[in-house]
Simulated assay, not measured.
Amino acid sequence: MARGKKLYEGKAKVLYEGPEPGTIVQYFKDDATAFNAEKKDVIDGKGVLNNRLSEFFMLGLDQIGVPTHFLKRLNMREQLVRRCEIVPLEIIVRNFAAGSMAKRLGMEEGTKLPRPIIEYSYKDDALGDPLVPEEYIAAFGWASQHDMDDIYSIAMRVNDYLSGVMYGVGIKLIDFKIEVGRVFEGDFQRLVVADEISPDSCRLWDIETGKKLDKDVFRQDLGNLTDAYTEVAHRLGVLPKNPTPVTKPTLIN
């Protein structure tokens, strides 16, 4: 499927004009970044894995009635998505203390929170995506109160879905972040889950061992990032554990 001109290049993906109006081709790169892009590397195969995993999660959300921008996967690195107006927020859902929250509050990583906590950060790389309260969001017009109610509902439903799916394969969902976009249909708009859902945007720990299976492997130099993402894909059945080797056809006279 032909893609159009480049629209935007981020740290992990490139966006191109899609083949039809209102569509975008989303290309997954192998680039890995951490600490607001202060640490960078290219991890062979990362983009392929994130493309497949994000497809899996987006289709799962669609099946339970959570709208997303995903239309279909095109190939190993690209997927077709709806064009939407991104709300300039990262929506962070935390089930256990980890990362910046653990540091801010002096909590031990892995401490279970009394309930899922949702935080919002303003999407601006130059500012380091600072956390913002809902008062800022309303005052600066980034989202209406109705939008925020919908965003909260979407985030909690995504959390329920991801937590259940991960628990079923022996993985603890520590936290994750999503982005939300506005899709316009005539005079109406609706909010959809946009961007991606992958180990790049989640913290995933093995339930039994506490082994990290997410981008913290790269952040903290804990091993091979591709191996960690591949394990997640294997457990979810996105990739076969023992792929059948490709052999030449046998000619029968």
Rank of each mutant, 00 (worst) to 15 (best):
G168I: 05
L127P: 04
M148Y: 02
K248V: 15
D175S: 05
V180M: 06
N36C: 09
S153L: 11
Y122P: 00
T209F: 03
R219L: 06
K112Q: 15
D214K: 03
L162A: 05
P21D: 13
L225A: 05
N242Q: 13
R190D: 04
L49R: 10
A228P: 09
K5P: 02
A2L: 12
S54E: 10
P130Q: 03
Y120D: 01
R157S: 12
Q63P: 06
P240L: 10
G170K: 07
P245A: 12
V169S: 04
D187W: 07
P88I: 05
A12R: 02
D62M: 13
I171P: 00
D160W: 09
Q79P: 02
T111I: 05
L61M: 14
F218E: 02
R52F: 14
R82N: 10
A102I: 04
L59P: 09
P240A: 13
R190K: 15
E196P: 01
E108G: 06
I178P: 00
F184D: 04
G18Q: 04
L53R: 07
Q189R: 13
T33K: 10
E208C: 02
D206G: 11
H146T: 14
V232G: 06
T250V: 15
V158I: 14
R190V: 06
A2T: 12
A233C: 09
Y167G: 15
G186A: 08
A138Q: 11
R190L: 08
F28S: 09
F96Y: 15
F28H: 13
F184K: 15
P240G: 13
D125F: 05
V42Y: 07
K6S: 07
D175Q: 03
L173Q: 01
M148S: 05
Y167C: 11
M101P: 00
I171S: 00
